[in-house]
Write a protein that binds this DNA or RNA. Structure first.
Lengths: 178, 178
DNA sequence: CGATATTTGATATGGTCCATAACAATTATC
DNA sequence: GATAATTGTTATGGACCATATCAAATATCG
């Protein structure tokens, strides 16, 4: 739940509510004890299936990248900096949907691992230009290979090339126009 | 070779820099100042587009449900309890991928709003049977209508009926087999 | 039977991600 | 030159997720 809404605090212990109360035995007769539950309409809920798919994909991504210790977010930063050298933190962060304050620690991490570097701009001495280090470029190159051969390849053998492209195209459309 | 990697016209120029650092002025010459950034391979990264789509969909879901104050997670709980009455907390939580400790506060919330109720089981007095209250059933019915007319309908006009079903089917496959 | 292990709901706690306010340094605006 | 806006940063709080632990109830097994 991205949007800030009412929290689920409710530090209150709900007692027996007379409303909606049923005899336990009555309800008990219905559900078969040990069997798997019926997902019902849930399996066609866009949000539900989207979220579960996203969790699985991230999980797989992390396994594929275990040797490089790169999270999806870190990988996206490296990709974007490589493609757009000479941009500052605000620009990189905002196009990734990362808020500037939260981007600081992330860059601290990448910079401490010598994967990218902040360079004080000469034009505008407030901003930090972002660049990949040589090590950062090398790591990113290896990461791309891992993603292509282990991660995206998995999607291909699951859906097929054509479906894979269709899926990504639809997701991109949803992400931009929904 | 699924992903369109390589083919980078990287007009890069690795300068001196013992640690991969560069002179700011040198880098500055490249990036056009105010223009939009190139997403590059990012727009074809499954995880990236999945995550952004999921955020957009959840955001839209919350807007559609604003009058009922239901989050996607809460909606999924109500749906599952309705479809599987007589199940206990552990069963409902686990099929939704929610850990039992985190499910407690969630149920406290729903129960405090009189949408569902915990009933002490007579067979196994450790467990709490979950049931929708009458109000819970009514709210869920209204929620379903809102989701169908405002939320899923949006997806239909964006992708079309056939593509919408294909998308959900592929996501379900990814969620279960990736 | 009774001792031990397991299960269920619950609490406490820590980590990560996300969002807002505020600040110093720098730059833009007038 | 005074004021406003921007950039990176810190501090902070909330939401979500994960683990350890507990009491009560049940299951297991000698």
């Amino acid at each position: 739940m991205t949007v800030s809404r009412a929290a689920e605090k409710s530090s209150e212990k709900p007692a027996d509510s007379a409303k909606g109360r049923k005899d336990a035995a009555e309800v008990q007769g219905q559900g078969a004890a040990g069997e798997a539950l019926q997902l019902g309409e849930l399996s066609e809920q866009l949000g539900y299936v989207l979220k579960r798919a996203q969790l699985k994909v991230f999980e797989n991504f992390l396994r594929c990248m275990a040797s490089l210790q790169l999270t999806p977010a870190q990988f996206s930063v490296l990709l974007l900096v490589e493609k757009n050298p000479g941009r500052n933190q605000t620009e990189i962060a905002s196009t990734l949907g990362i808020l500037r304050p939260n981007f600081v620690a992330m860059l601290d991490n990448l910079e401490s691992r010598d994967l990218c570097a902040r360079i004080r701009s000469t034009n505008d001495r407030r901003s930090h230009i972002l660049v990949l280090t040589d090590k950062g470029k090398a790591v990113l190159a290896r990461a791309k290979k891992l993603v292509a051969t282990k991660h995206e390849a998995r999607l291909n053998e699951l859906l097929g090339q054509a479906n894979r492209e269709a899926l990504i195209a639809m997701l991109a459309k949803v992400a931009s126009e929904f």
